[in-house]
């Protein structure tokens, strides 16, 4: 029986919670320290004086606002397009018999392991030649290519579990093929599509390499790149607590998504990787 709850399991649970949350709590605490406090040096964990001033200055910062808009826009568009294309692919892989199926899966596997930095040079060169450098589209295209493998795997694993016979059963019962598709297949496939979309969004939201090398201005620079280049007035002492507030702001969407969809995300992450 695995329902047994020994002391080792409880210690383990506490260890997991501390591991996962300590750095997050730490950066939240930092973000509430007034800038003057961190500039003078404040090695204690909790703020001496709690203050909202960092959040005010970050949210009013024009560069940061633009970066947030860029990140949301680029990640969302890349996610929608990538999941749409991956759905077609996964449907074909899961349901149809055709030559080259293994090749498709092998390409996806190879792309997932590809060292992204080695593309920085040629893409930098190509994008400047065709006018995609420092544009949304210039980031959306690489994000799509690199999220496709994850989306294809996740969706293929989900689609293999769908009892497709039910579609025919509904048609036998008098439903039109459109009705059968909409009422039977779409509700069954939707959770998988949704999970793939979350994982894809995480990937695009997290990207740093393309974000710093294929952009140069606020035109398209996404949040992670903007954070890394955020130096403040004194180049040798980056504003610790302001940066922390910005870091907390960009982490909030992740935490909300995780809180609502944790079960789906775990199912999606583990479905493609292991048989079953």
């Amino acid at each position: 029986m695995r329902a047994k709850l020994g002391p080792s399991t409880i210690i383990g649970m506490i260890a997991i919670l501390v591991w996962c949350l300590l750095p997050v709590v730490w950066i939240i605490m930092l973000s509430f320290k007034p800038e003057a406090e961190t500039a003078a040096g404040s090695p204690q964990f909790l703020p001496k004086d709690w203050s909202w001033e960092n959040y005010q200055s970050v949210l009013q910062d024009d560069l940061f606002q633009r970066a947030l808009i860029n990140s949301f826009g680029i990640s969302l568009i890349a996610t929608v397009l990538s999941v749409m294309i991956a759905t077609l692919t996964a449907y074909a892989v899961a349901r149809l018999e055709f030559k080259g199926k293994r090749v498709v899966l092998s390409i996806a596997l190879a792309i997932a392991m590809f060292p992204v930095v080695s593309l920085v040079g040629p893409l930098f060169d190509m994008w400047r030649a065709v006018g995609l450098y420092d544009t949304w589209l210039g980031l959306i295209i690489p994000y799509m290519s690199f999220t496709l493998p994850l989306a294809i795997w996740t969706l293929t694993a989900f689609f293999r579990e769908i009892p497709w016979e039910m579609e025919q059963a509904a048609q036998v019962d008098g439903a039109t093929s459109w009705q059968a598709f909409r009422k039977v297949i779409v509700p069954l496939a939707a959770p998988g599509v949704f999970t793939a979309a979350i994982l894809t969004f995480f990937f695009a939201w997290n990207d740093f390499v393309f974000g710093i090398s294929l952009t140069s201005t606020t035109n398209a620079r996404p949040v992670p790149a903007a954070l890394a280049f955020f130096v403040g007035p004194d180049q040798f002492n980056p504003p610790t607590s302001t940066l922390s507030a910005a870091a907390v702001v960009v982490t909030i969407p992740i935490i909300i998504i995780v809180l609502i969809f944790q079960r789906k995300i775990v199912a999606g992450l583990t479905s493609g990787a292991v048989k079953g």
Binding site: V24, W205, P224, T251, I254, I265, L269
Partner: peptide, 12 residues
């Protein structure tokens, strides 16, 4: 909680 480090931006 296990998904928070997974989802957090590496730069953060």
């Amino acid at each position: 909680s296990i998904l928070i480090p997974y989802g957090i931006i590496t730069v953060v």
